[in-house]
Design a protein around this nucleic acid. Structure first.
Lengths: 344, 344
DNA sequence: GACAAGCACGTGAACGTTCACATCGACGGT
DNA sequence: ACCGTCGATGTGAACGTTCACGTGCTTGTC
């Protein structure tokens, strides 16, 4: 910088002004400095700036290391993309960090935190993360993507609305007996929201769901199959199944195909890349918007603007595909027992 | 840092030594400094370090913005994960940057480069990227993940070996007439490698493939369907189809199902998450290793170790699934014309 | 025509770390 | 007992930027 200043016949401060695009520099001077910069191949040092300004203009994004089938990599990838775009548009950098699934949030933080490499944190998958409150205690700006039980600003998808839309869709098709395959307890907050959506959809239609039609899996296709076995081995099986993620929904689909049980509608959640392939009706989480919104909130916070609201809900979108159709008989009867003999 | 030094009754340099885990500090002193650090809540500043050391210990990873169907998000996500893990293990940070697909590489670079935020670059998807040589000219350490035509070190999957394994597998099952659905010309280097693998597999089996059984698509499922139409509308259709990516392979599968043409084996490439769902035999690219290896090479380069080789090939793995089976008749005849009448 | 105000630009210090070197003591060899 | 060596610690400067001022010049106003 010193050299550039000398070459352009100005002071280092003027060079700084030109680099930072401040307006109080006259045009000829600016031109001369620019010329000197390119001539000398000068590039400002982020380190120097960080030290002088007291912030690095970089934020960290913490994501689970190997995303299981829960959401899938599509969700995560789009989320990362959205966050990166937003952050980049505001002149920040995005430092990525992975954490062991279910591991300590702090372990990932301290890596950067202790070197004060970043100005703030974006944390995906709030639930089940320990150490979040420690972070908060240190006064670090942070936004959680997902459901946080701590006192941090959070951004999460509209699980409730998505589940509501699925049930509403199934009811509109004429289904009345709808099997539910709930997720494991660990993701309790997201699952509770979906559960609420289901309940509300039934209530709004003035219907009373059969509580015995609710089962539970662990997000894997195998657990979906197991749930299907239980749901359809009864006198009054459902005409449709709504699984709380695509993995379990695919398991249900597979069981239906293999056991030769046609005419059953199936819907999933998350709209993973397998969903369009399998023709599975599912709920798209708008992951990109999720990342974008969270990034926006964090950067605003860093710039002193207080977050407008502690909880931001990003709308979900129902993707209707071939796996949901009207039921083959008007009202579910009990004659479907024993499977192989149905077909409309 | 000054405060910590004062509190511990040592010099700032000793504090620096403790922070950097240098061994030439006696145990009691180290203990005292550590105590002072925690007592004062001291955290070293990455900015200061970057300035003093002349490097930031952060590398950038440049990935295409919205991954199309070419590789899919799984590939990218695992790649990112691998790179991050490796980089983190060596004390570096990973700064993520997205670029418009097919866009100028430099546009992404300059963002960081001009602020000298990073010590080096990891660039995914070398082919078709302009501006790579400019980067090289600036003497920036960089490793390309994919096929680079520039003079940069590169890491790419074993496309040739993967394609070889697929054809070998199909030949071993008894197939002799194997349809090939090549990819678009843009990714010419990866596609050429796969093509070479196919040729070599035939040659090693002392067989001569029918050159008219080679078609071409643009990676979409639609183009796969179109290719299937052409491949099977002939007197001597293939008994197996090897598409150069999963998207096209799924298109072929779909056409076979819809047109009622059973008994045809189909293999894809990339092993996207849709492949296991569809039971598609495919080639897994070991994306995580790809990212890991590239990161390793870059960091080594930053630490002065010259790269052992300019081109690193990461092995691929054939994933055999239900979509590939022995042909329904020993040798392909001409009697399959008109489809619907085959079945073994 | 004097004075305040505003603009363009310069000056020195400060940010927090590491580097190169200096210092001091202890230890072993002859 | 002397000297060279090595290990532990201290000292000052340097890295490259921004911040808070200070200076000089131009412009406008009564």
């Amino acid at each position: 910088m010193r050299d550039v200043a000398a070459a352009a016949g100005v002071s280092h401060q003027t060079v700084s002004r030109v680099v930072n695009d401040e307006r109080s520099v006259t045009e000829p001077v600016r031109e001369r400095v620019r010329a000197a910069i390119t001539a000398l191949g000068y590039r400002p040092s982020a380190g120097g700036r960080a030290m002088a300004r007291g912030r690095t203009e970089v934020v960290a994004l913490v994501v689970p290391h190997a995303a299981g089938f829960t959401f899938g990599n599509d969700h995560l990838m789009r989320l990362i993309g959205g966050a990166e775009q937003e952050v980049a548009a505001r002149g920040y950098g995005l430092l990525l960090s992975t954490r062991e699934p279910g591991g300590d949030a702090m372990s990932a933080f301290t890596r950067f935190d202790r070197r004060s490499l970043v100005d703030g944190f974006l944390v995906e998958g709030g639930a089940g993360l320990t150490g979040l409150s420690d972070l908060l205690a240190q006064g670090y700006p942070a936004v959680v993507i997902g459901y946080a039980d701590d006192d941090l600003p959070m951004v999460h998808p509209d699980d409730e609305g998505g589940a509501y839309a699925v049930v509403q869709h199934l009811l509109a098709l004429g289904h009345r007996r709808i099997g539910i395959v709930n997720g494991p307890a660990e993701n309790h907050l997201a699952m509770a929201a979906r559960r609420t959506g289901v309940t509300r959809a039934f209530a709004d239609a003035h219907l009373h769901p059969d509580p015995t039609l609710t089962d539970r899996g662990d997000f894997t296709a195998e657990s979906g199959q197991a749930a299907a076995v239980r749901l359809f081995d009864r006198a009054d099986p459902p005409t449709a199944v709504f699984a709380f993620n695509d993995g379990m929904a695919l398991g249900v689909l597979q069981w239906l195909r293999e056991s030769g049980t046609p005419g059953i509608s199936v819907a999933g959640f998350d709209d993973t890349s397998a969903a369009p392939v399998a023709g599975l009706t599912s709920v798209a989480l708008q992951s990109q918007d999720l990342g974008r919104r969270a990034a926006q909130l964090l950067v605003d916070q860093l710039n002193g603007k207080p977050p407008s609201e502690r909880r931001t809900i990003v709308p979900s979108r129902l993707m209707v595909r071939s796996s949901t159709t009207p039921p083959t008989q008007p009202k579910s009867g009990s004659r479907r027992r024993g499977s192989h003999n149905v077909k409309g």
